[in-house]
Computed example of a mutant assay.
Amino acid sequence: MPSPDKETAPSTLPAGAVARDVERHRGANVARVRDAVAEEIPIAFVYNERPHAVMMATPADLQDFALGFSLSEAIIDHAAQCEKVEIVEALAGIELRITIPEKYAAVLDDRVRQLTGRTGCGLCGAQTLDAAVRHPARVVDVATIDALALKRSLNELQRSQKINAVTGATHAAAWAATQGRIVLLREDVGRHNALDKLIGAMLSTGTDSGGIDPHDGFLVVTSRASYEMVMKAATVGIGFLAAISAPTALAIALAKETNLTLIGFARAHGYSVYANAQRVLDQSAQIDRSIAS
């Protein structure tokens, strides 16, 4: 978290942060300074010229956002089916004009799902219970992670957040190798958006095969573990999620249903495992599993 007294030069700001004037009060002292704040604008998803969703998001890594959202919302099955993404600036925001095979675009018409997403809200606009709560297939071949690797990833996580370092206003979703090294990170004012951007980056870059293997590592997020975070992860085959804040009851239930290991309250000094604890190796722990299930 940046210091509230820190002033950042506009020329040094990362994409997704902008400079604004602020009147800063500290006791009896008042100063007018330039401050770094996170951008948040409407981003419209348009598939084959069909408007589908509008999300309030940070306008950075938009190609990743388009691909990740399309995959995590099960609009397409594979990255190659995202044939083209055109980023078009409009007066009110930005349009992501996405071209996918027509049979997948036609399915969107049947889903009758027009999302108006506020920051951190991905279910807004779902019109039926079936549309609101999806049940991804069970994940397979999930890596076993050592507790020391988890601690290492948490130490790297804060240092890797460039937008949050100057604004204090963004979430991050990061992919860590099994040893705990952060290999990819994306940020956004919305936690779901950050995860979508990460998923898009993972599945479009990295290995020679065209992406990072979602079975070879684990996901770390700077937010609570809501149902949607688990749903999006499981949909693309990620089977290990660690959040620095709490999970919800529905997230725990879905994690168990999809065979995903779910960790909450991940901190340098400890963590809580809510589902599939057998994949967490902790040599220093003295485990008491006598609690009734």
Rank of each mutant, 00 (worst) to 15 (best):
A74P: 05
C124D: 09
E49S: 15
A38I: 09
G270L: 09
A169P: 00
R181S: 14
V183N: 00
V166E: 03
A268S: 15
A251Y: 02
P136A: 10
K103H: 08
A92V: 07
V220F: 08
Q158C: 02
I287Q: 09
T144N: 09
S204A: 14
L185K: 12
V220W: 03
D288C: 04
L262A: 14
V133Y: 15
A131I: 05
N164M: 01
V30F: 04
A176W: 07
A233L: 04
D188F: 11
V107A: 09
R279P: 01
I199G: 02
Q114A: 02
V85K: 03
R181Q: 14
A15T: 13
M1N: 09
G125T: 09
L195A: 11
A19W: 02
D5H: 09
A105M: 08
H52R: 04
S11D: 10
N29M: 10
E40C: 15
A105K: 06
L203R: 13
Q179D: 13
I163S: 04
V220S: 07
I212Y: 05
H215K: 06
A277P: 00
S226E: 10
P4E: 04
E187M: 05
D282E: 14
G93F: 10
Q179P: 01
A143P: 01
I212T: 10
L115H: 12
P136W: 12
E156W: 03
V189T: 14
G180H: 06
T144H: 09
E7H: 07
P247Y: 06
D196F: 08
L260T: 15
S293L: 10
E102H: 12
D208P: 06
A225G: 12
S293D: 00
M56V: 11
Y271P: 00
A126M: 13
R113S: 12
A60D: 03
R118G: 14
T258E: 03
R159H: 11
E7W: 09
E86I: 06
R32D: 00
A131F: 02
V22E: 15
P136T: 12
G206S: 04
G125F: 04
A74R: 15
P214W: 07
G122E: 05
T222C: 04
G206K: 00
R186C: 09
M1W: 07
A201S: 14
H215C: 13
A137I: 03
A285P: 02
A126I: 07
T144W: 04
D35E: 15
H171A: 06
F240E: 02
E228G: 02
T128Q: 00
L154F: 11
A277W: 10
S11E: 15
S209H: 10
R289P: 00
V189M: 04
A80I: 11
A201K: 13
S3Q: 06
P2S: 09
V18G: 05
I182V: 13
S204R: 08
R159N: 13
G122P: 00
L254M: 05
E187W: 08
Y227A: 00
A172G: 11
E89I: 04
D208F: 12
A90N: 05
A31G: 01
I199R: 10
S160I: 02
L185F: 06
P51C: 02
A292G: 08
A9N: 14
D35V: 14
R267A: 07
P101S: 03
C82K: 03
